[in-house]
């Protein structure tokens, strides 16, 4: 029993953090004029091996697992990397489970990109909803991935009926509204047989943890440098204590994430309890920290130029996909009564 990152884990985190800080730093978000990532930026992520890292070496992957993928996804969250990145990591996993070798390889190599699909009505046990969808981060996307507690699907973008670009919550991302889904074109993998859900819970929790941590760090930095009444505002408890609460929320969310990731990797009996808990705790940490960070930044926190609102919006996005955090919380109660 040792829930301490290994030197290899530290190395993965450091290399991801260094790459993203130099190539795709969060600070660029307010200045973006085109949604999502350019072809060159996307190729850079693929070249880092992050989309394929969860695949076995025999299938062209790095043979690394969900723990390492979660550590990278956490860095995506920290730097506001568009959702296509984690969606593509998940799509690789799902395509591989579906036995679609061609799609797995295309996604892993960065030749195809995945957007996130959120159905207006939840999927039934037999397949994805045929009704309306909201599709997130669709610019240059080739497929969309959606999942809930009943199962997960992958569908080409063309399978969504009357798809139109709509005003987006997060202007740095393109959103589409679709009337329905041609289910014949969708590939479905049912839970619990697929065991995709825990992966998706953990990787989205990881992005949320990264966001929560970024908001903590932005707030602490601002509290140290912004002066009012001739003192740094961090010397007032009205600012310092919410910052401390952000740190506590991060510590809880990160610990739960790592515990859950290890459970998913090992197929531990506590897996379902911890993967669902990790998503709930990470969502509330991310949303709560972003909201608190907007307050700590005062008037600047309400502007487009400052970053907290981007983290708030990403928390909303990741909290709404995958059947919504409410479904994970229902799953927590279900799993708790079984352990």
């Amino acid at each position: 029993m040792d829930l301490h990152p290994t030197p290899e884990h530290d190395e993965i985190v450091e290399s991801a953090a260094a790459y993203l800080a130099s190539e795709l730093p969060a600070a660029r978000a307010p200045k973006l004029t085109e949604p999502s990532l350019t072809g060159g930026e996307w190729a850079g992520l693929a070249a880092m091996g992050w989309f394929s890292m969860g695949l076995p070496e025999a299938d062209g992957g790095l043979g690394l697992g969900v723990v390492e993928s979660a550590l990278v996804a956490r860095e995506f969250g920290r730097q506001l990397v568009p959702p296509q990145a984690v969606a593509t990591m998940l799509a690789v996993q799902l395509a591989w489970r579906l036995g679609d070798r061609e799609l797995t390889e295309a996604l892993a190599a960065g030749a195809q990109r995945a957007a996130l699909a959120a159905p207006v009505r939840e999927a039934g046990p037999a397949g994805p909803s045929a009704h309306g969808y909201r599709l997130v981060d669709t610019h240059r996307a080739d497929v969309a991935i959606g999942w809930s507690h009943g199962g997960a699907f992958l569908a080409p973008m063309d399978a969504f009926a009357s798809r139109v670009v709509a005003p987006s919550l997060d202007a740095a991302l393109e959103v589409c509204v679709a009337d329905g889904l041609d289910r014949a074109q969708a590939r479905w993998s049912a839970e619990p047989a697929s065991s995709f859900l825990p992966q998706a819970q953990v990787l989205t929790a990881a992005v949320l943890v990264g966001g929560a941590e970024a908001c903590r760090d932005l707030s602490a930095e601002y509290a140290k440098t912004r002066h009012q009444f001739s003192r740094p505002i961090g010397s007032f408890q009205a600012i310092a204590h919410p910052c401390a609460d952000m740190a506590v929320a991060c510590e809880a969310a990160l610990s739960c994430l790592l515990y859950a990731a290890v459970c998913v990797r090992d197929g531990a009996p506590e897996r379902d309890l911890y993967s669902a808990s990790a998503r709930s705790v990470a969502y509330h940490a991310a949303y709560g920290n972003a909201a608190a960070s907007m307050q700590v930044h005062g008037g600047y926190g309400q502007t487009y130029e400052y970053l907290p609102h981007f983290y708030l919006k990403r928390a909303m996005i990741y909290g709404l996909v995958g059947g919504g955090v409410e479904a994970d919380e229902a799953a927590v109660l279900q799993a708790a009564s079984l352990t």
Binding site: M1, L3, H4, E251, A252, A253, L254, S255, C256, L258, Y259, A260, L273, Y274, A276, S277, A278, S280, V281, H284, D328, E329, A330, V332, L333, A336
Partner: peptide, 16 residues
């Protein structure tokens, strides 16, 4: 539900 999830996190925090 949220409390149960947070207690799972507390347990993980304890191990960390």
């Amino acid at each position: 539900a949220r409390l149960r999830a947070e207690t799972a996190a507390l347990r993980a925090m304890t191990f960390a």
